[in-house]
Amino acid sequence: MGFIQRKRRYKYFLILAFITLAFVTIISSTMGVADISFIDSLKIMVSRIPLFGALIDNESIRQSHDFIVINVRLPRILLSALIGVGLSLVGSTFQGMFRNPMADPYILGISSGASVGATIAIVLGFGGVIGGLSIITLFAFLGAIVTVVLVYNLARVGNRASTLGLILSGVAVGLFLSSMVSMLMFFNRDDIEKIVMWTMGSVSAATWNKVGILTPVVIIGSIIIMTYARDLNAMSIGDETAKSLGIEVERVKKILLTVSSLIVACCVATSGVIGFVGLIVPHTIRLIVGSDQRGVLPFSALSGAIFMVVCDTVARNLIPPAEIPVGALTSLFGAPFFIFMLYKNKKKVI
């Protein structure tokens, strides 16, 4: 079946995915050390929505519960969801653009760049906060952006950068920066734990400030990427074919690289390196809906969000009060599921 025939069915599935995400969000907000009921949690959230707020009677809800849901759990859930959306979308974009199934959001060395930035800030003891964001976050963001610019310019010949050139220079720069992090850790042993915890990736330091910054970046970025879905389809067949189909390949590549890098840089800066989501969510979705990016992108975005929220809920509830870094959990849960999907698909062929 072609995309057009599938389109109507997609609409229902998308609505379903949205409802699932909302449901998962509310469930997650009830879970934790403080026991808050589903209804209370729902009331607390709805009461904050303008217009609807007046309809809700939350006299009976304890002040502390309101505080926990709004200031502790909700920013964390939203941050997980945003990161899930961003990483899955960029993963799908890069896999298509680079025509490489192993491509993930970090293929251009962004994660290593951010790690170096964060490590430098940690080692130098910059613990301050600027504009509501920690200096570590800002350094990580800077590290990520500098890395992408460096990688692009290394791969650039004249006015264009080849796909292979980008991947190779991304891998080379990434490895170089990773060993820089190792060296910094070696010479600053006291900070090792902090650095390792940062690179493992976690949303435990979520704040409304972080959510406020990530929301516009991820949402606007996602919309831009999705308007290029058809171009991405053609580009996943080959740059030259895409060009012969009337796509300004070099221009599209630059736009998508810029938008994607910004999304990933913001994700990594706010929550460290969370692996797996950006690699496997798009693959899993492709096994279900096929390769058309007009289906893959929106479904990856929503599934990535659901997946991240679920993982983080588990991460903070598995062995309370300890919190497992969600970056360590994503693969633990995701890999078996993906293997199951691959196996199911294999059986279909046989």
């Binding site: 072609g2 058809r230 996943s236 189909l245």
Partner: peptide, 14 residues
Amino acid sequence: FEFTVTDIVLMGRS
């Protein structure tokens, strides 16, 4: 990538 034949031919309309 696993596009259907229809998807591929429709790309000609890009």
